[in-house]
Simulated assay, not measured.
Amino acid sequence: MTNFQQHPQATAYWTVGQEKGELRSVDLAVPGPGEALVRTLFSGISKGTEMVVHKARVPECVAERMAAPHQEGSFPSPVKFGYLSVGVVEDGPAEWKGRTVFCLYPHQDRYIVPVDSLTLVPGDVPAARAVLTGTVETAVNALWEAGPRLGDRVAVIGAGMVGGMVATLLRTFPLQRLQLIDVDPAKRAFAEALGVEFSHPDDAAKDCDIVIHCSASQEGLERSLQLVGDEGDIIEMSWYADRKVTIPLGEDFHARRLSIRASQVGAVARARRHRRTSADRLELAVSLLRDPVFDTFLTGTSPFAELPDVVQQLADGRLDALCHVIEYPQNNT
């Protein structure tokens, strides 16, 4: 039994202006049929996308498409945005009570959602690690889009959160070659922790079957065109938001019949869309987190009360992180 009746409100993080966020009280209703009340344990900051929102850089033409599943408000602000939440079901259908779950929900200490929005976290996956489920899902979708084959030569450009996640999944594939590429030599230690070969862009091997681009930079995309082999595929995972990007399509792009395809997690990749649902994809993603190598991506923890300052520190570079974890107080029941 919960004390929900004595606590009809929750606290949530809202972006209320350009580079301005705050914690706000929000009203909670009583869970209805098929709904669950979740008490949050941890949430993760998806640095790339959430910094775009924090800096008010979501283009108006894609604002509706880029909305998170349980977002409130609208871009640029005020908006309640986020999608890496792990908690415990306190109220709802009997079979869900007490279960640890992942949900694509913003940063909020309690929330009510339909149970079909929840993904069960396996007992052997730590709750803090489970915040990575949404990013693993993004990487799974990209690999379904790319379709790597036995003996392929693959490059992943950009050793950040998404690029590192893609490389981590690919390291178990029977590839001939896999390189994680970044301009920052300090990323070599990160790649080694993942068990993946590291390379600076200038030294990277060419004639790749697939290049997966995750650096969100014009230079990285240009290098992708140079590293991919004839008639090869470039999978573009970067979101440039309102930035303009120029690439040299007037060089050998046309002559070598290269392909650039976008991968975005909002829809299941075409190669699996008729046989997998988004829920199937999430279940696969959380199951992959049994591997402790994913703890490498968890690079810091802060209490929920400090979230507005943490977001600003990430935005201005004072805090360097892959996935920064927000921990919620456990005496809020």
Rank of each mutant, 00 (worst) to 15 (best):
M1A: 01
H7V: 00
P8S: 07
T11G: 00
V16M: 08
E19A: 10
K20H: 06
K20Q: 10
G21V: 02
E22F: 07
E22K: 04
V26W: 13
P31H: 08
P33W: 10
P33G: 09
E35R: 01
V38N: 07
F42P: 12
S43T: 09
G44I: 00
G44K: 00
S46N: 11
S46M: 01
G48D: 08
T49A: 00
E50F: 05
V52P: 05
K55F: 02
A56F: 09
V58L: 08
P59M: 07
V62C: 01
E64R: 00
E64Q: 02
M66N: 09
A68Q: 12
S74M: 01
F75W: 12
V89N: 14
V89Q: 11
E90S: 10
D91A: 13
G92W: 13
G92D: 13
P93C: 09
E95A: 10
W96P: 08
K97G: 01
R99S: 03
R99P: 03
V101Q: 03
V101C: 03
F102P: 00
C103E: 15
C103A: 15
R110M: 08
V113R: 03
V113K: 02
V115Q: 07
L118W: 09
P122I: 01
V125T: 02
P126T: 00
A130S: 01
T133Y: 01
G134P: 05
A139P: 15
N141V: 00
A142C: 10
R149C: 11
R153P: 07
V154Y: 11
A155E: 07
V156E: 06
V156W: 11
A159T: 13
L169C: 04
L169D: 06
T172L: 09
F173C: 10
Q176L: 13
R177C: 02
Q179K: 12
L180C: 13
I181M: 07
D182Q: 09
A186I: 03
A189L: 12
F190M: 06
A193P: 08
L194T: 05
G195N: 06
F198Y: 15
S199K: 14
H200S: 13
P201L: 03
D202H: 13
A205V: 11
I212H: 14
I212K: 15
C214Y: 04
C214Q: 04
C214F: 05
A216L: 04
S217I: 14
Q218V: 02
E219G: 03
V228T: 09
D230L: 09
D230R: 15
W239R: 06
A241F: 09
K244S: 01
G250P: 06
E251D: 14
S259F: 10
Q264D: 06
A267W: 08
A267E: 10
H274S: 11
T277C: 06
R281L: 03
A285D: 03
S287W: 11
L289H: 09
D291P: 07
F297A: 02
P303D: 14
P303N: 06
P303A: 04
L307G: 04
V311I: 14
L314Y: 08
A315P: 10
G317H: 07
R318E: 15
L319R: 14
A321D: 03
C323I: 00
H324F: 06
T333A: 12
